[in-house]
Design a protein around this nucleic acid. Structure first.
Lengths: 151, 151
DNA sequence: CCGTATCCAACTAGATACTG
DNA sequence: CAGTATCTAGTTGGATACGG
């Protein structure tokens, strides 16, 4: 997503990066406050993973349990290519969200499953998914209206 | 994000796209089930917005309240360009997440604020942000380990 | 079966200059 | 102030062929 990709492994700044403060608006809505550019709320690190084309679907499919490469590929909508599935799984593995197990058999067999951290994130994906499904009609309508009034 | 971008305004298929079923694993974790390729869980529509470089930050800043263009630009980390801020705001407006109000003054004044739907989504962004902040150390460690063991 | 390597097409975002 | 227009660079993703 972002060119260069925010590097969370960078040494912490001299001032300890305190967790961004949470405030509320008058209406009681949450406000995310980033005090320094360095923390960037750490949000980009998550969204870089969520934002690419396939990570979300891989996480979702793996929530059901352990899957082999080919099985995973079959289950994912939109025909993910071998290359993209490999890249996606490597990134998720690197981030500690997915565990990869290789059985040295012939032919080779590789299994993928969520780590504990991956599972904790999958709950958020569920919320996102629910929101998305619930608001899809509203979004569709908003887009139609916008497109009509903006020729 | 995705070339072509999933079009929620497309006419519904002959079979009514029933909401994807929700299941639980043995462990009690949520499973998102997409029965047809068409629904795709509607997730891509959300993530296409979340996944681009600036939408998240715009939403976050607007959670605090109404802001003018220049104010918004100043608050966003990483120096968003005028062009990118404009594009981002237009997309969010089109999706019904942001409301744009033009005051025909001289010089011109334009205000941006979240819609109700936008505010309902900002809660999810907060969850994502919290998770991200909480797990940033773990992700950083996972990446270091991975990079060490994969030369 | 599970990848890696290579090449190519598409999109996103940045820089810069100009307008109502 | 709040944009639009244009041009370019960098990245992602798809297709295909080949290797362990």
């Amino acid at each position: 997503m972002s060119p260069g990709h925010t590097d969370v492994t960078a040494p912490a700044a001299a001032t300890a990066p305190a967790a961004p403060a949470a405030r509320l608006t008058e209406a009681g809505d949450p406000v995310i406050v980033c005090e320094t550019p360095q923390d960037e709320c750490g949000v980009r690190d998550v969204l870089d993973r969520l934002g690419d084309k396939w990570s979300m679907y891989v996480m979702v499919e793996l929530t059901a349990g352990t899957l082999r490469f080919k099985e995973l590929q079959r289950r994912i909508h939109g025909d993910v290519s071998q290359r993209m599935l490999t890249l996606t799984l490597r990134r998720l593995e690197r981030d500690g969200l997915v565990k990869r197990t290789v059985y040295p058999t012939v032919p080779p067999q590789v299994e993928y499953e969520l780590t504990d951290m991956g599972r904790s994130m999958s709950h958020l994906l569920k919320s996102l998914s629910d929101w998305s499904i619930a608001h899809r009609p509203a979004i569709a309508e908003a887009r139609s209206e916008y497109d009509e009034s903006h020729p």
